[in-house]
Design a binder for these strands. Sequence first.
DNA 1: CGAAAGCCTGAAACCGCTTTCACAAACCGG
DNA 2: CCGGTTTGTGAAAGCGGTTTCAGGCTTTCG
Lengths: 336, 336
Amino acid sequence: MAAKSNARPTYTQISQVSGVSEATVSRVLNGDDNVHPDRIKAVQDAVAKLGYKRNRAASSLASGRSGLIAVVIDDDLSIFSDPFWATVTSGISRVLMEHELQTLLMVANLNDTDGPVAHSLQGGEVDGAIFFQLHKDGLIKRLVKQGLPMVITGTPHTSNDFVFVDTDNFGGGLDATNHLFSRGCSKVSIITGDIETTAGRQRLDGYNQAYRKSGNVPNKRLIAQGDYSFESGKTAMLKLLQEVEDLDGVFACNDVMALGAIAAIEEFGKSVPHDIKVVGFDDSLLAQTSRPALTSVRQDIVALGEAAANLMIAQLKGETVEPVILSTALVIRESA
Amino acid sequence: MAAKSNARPTYTQISQVSGVSEATVSRVLNGDDNVHPDRIKAVQDAVAKLGYKRNRAASSLASGRSGLIAVVIDDDLSIFSDPFWATVTSGISRVLMEHELQTLLMVANLNDTDGPVAHSLQGGEVDGAIFFQLHKDGLIKRLVKQGLPMVITGTPHTSNDFVFVDTDNFGGGLDATNHLFSRGCSKVSIITGDIETTAGRQRLDGYNQAYRKSGNVPNKRLIAQGDYSFESGKTAMLKLLQEVEDLDGVFACNDVMALGAIAAIEEFGKSVPHDIKVVGFDDSLLAQTSRPALTSVRQDIVALGEAAANLMIAQLKGETVEPVILSTALVIRESA
DNA sequence: CGAAAGCCTGAAACCGCTTTCACAAACCGG
DNA sequence: CCGGTTTGTGAAAGCGGTTTCAGGCTTTCG
């Protein structure tokens, strides 16, 4: 193995070629000021000539900064049956890369506060962590205490000591419900998502507020609980149809349940949107391809990821940051 | 900052507590045999007592192994509108984690053979790379030449020097088409996906072979081209309906196009499955939630990711590996 | 019973980069 | 023109592991 092909250049070679010390090479490569322009030039030329690429391991070891940001996803498969999180991640990844940071993906069971993920995170392997969909916060609280910069995607319901980004779920619920009333509905029910999640509760709150302002009479019996699955949407809708008379509008807290609801309505012998109007949430692919095409609340998912990444970067710079709430837009199609 | 909270234990402390040299600590922690059981025990106790966690940067620097595997995704947004890749990634990530490897996610434009991703990959920052959906292979060829272990998800069409995993697209197309004939169809058309991709071509090949063996008469006019989008499926189907008489079966190369086709058929005044039977591919969420529910070719996507990860691990161990083809299963629902 | 072979072990070099520290040179006001 | 700052620089000490190397101790076998 003469002349090893993987013998990549180091500061030593740059130093020799450019005629400056390794210390100065480091300064130039890290954008330290206070280096004479001539030397900067010399180093840059040498770098270009040798095709130098920084060795991250060495750099991390010496500086204590790894350049890695963990994106931690709960090992709940449901997350991956939904393009939502993948899209958020792509937004995160792109922004991080622009700032020379790498995205370390960790799929793990977050209840396991002593698993390999918890170890990596606490072990200082990463410079920061972005969490998705926070359920249990034991691990996270510990990490905050350790001073690890963190961003949470989704509103944490346990505490607001965390930096987070989220869609305006309340506003989305409000808009969806208002839209149904403005379309002439007078008895509008809601199929909620998992009430354990803040997103689910906030959408419900939006619905309630819209109801109160509409001049119509809200009623607990109009509220059915689902869990974001197709089946739960269908079941909830059937129950509503049987229990509530003159129902003429439904706000389902995601598109999948909205489709379940539509299936139920049609099985029940009524039609959408003629008899009952339906609004979903997410504006996913499903909303566009279903028949009737689904009116749905759109959230800018890529922007959500970008916002998360930007909050992380701001923290890394030592800036104090505020939570970010992104607004939604109602996309009107056939179902309402 | 007295007693820094982040002053995590190192070999030095373990060495002191356990009374063995740092070299031996390393041997124990790396599973080197030839260490006296008593010493192993002593080290393990010290590790447990001190709550030691390995410093990856130091370890990488010294050993030349980073423990990082890149998952490289083409910056084509379409990838992220489809849960497919997210699911593959989750499979990869889980298997890698079981082997103490981390998943580094890179979303990038692969045509850019000189961008940051190309740099990282060539810079030895990762121990291996898993690519999705290979279009251009310039970068990849270079990496192979450098000896970077690689796995490609999807059959590369340019060369078979690569290690890859893929679904049995040919078999899936074959099964789908055979099923339509067995259901009594006699004139079956296909709506292809992007013919540029090998997956698209292989599914078409499967269709052709099934046709040849069926005793029915194949015909070029039965082949319509789509691009995996809903609209393309609809457009292609309308064209087929207008040009081909007595059409009674359609194999759409993914579920989204199948739904487009169903929409077209119903607009045309015919019904599914009564007049025309439809089979999709992917067995996605769409297939389960659409009405009529879609008969579709299922591929085990998580297994695809796991296979990719396992091939990577095998390469890392120095084993010679063969490409892996995963079989499909036809899931029969209402549409055919 | 002695020599060759094998097993375990610790000292020390090293991985490539960052950062402190000391010091020379250039600059300043008085 | 001199003590005192500023600037710019290189030598050298790490960062926390891994790995080579040589040597002490046991075995094994003729």
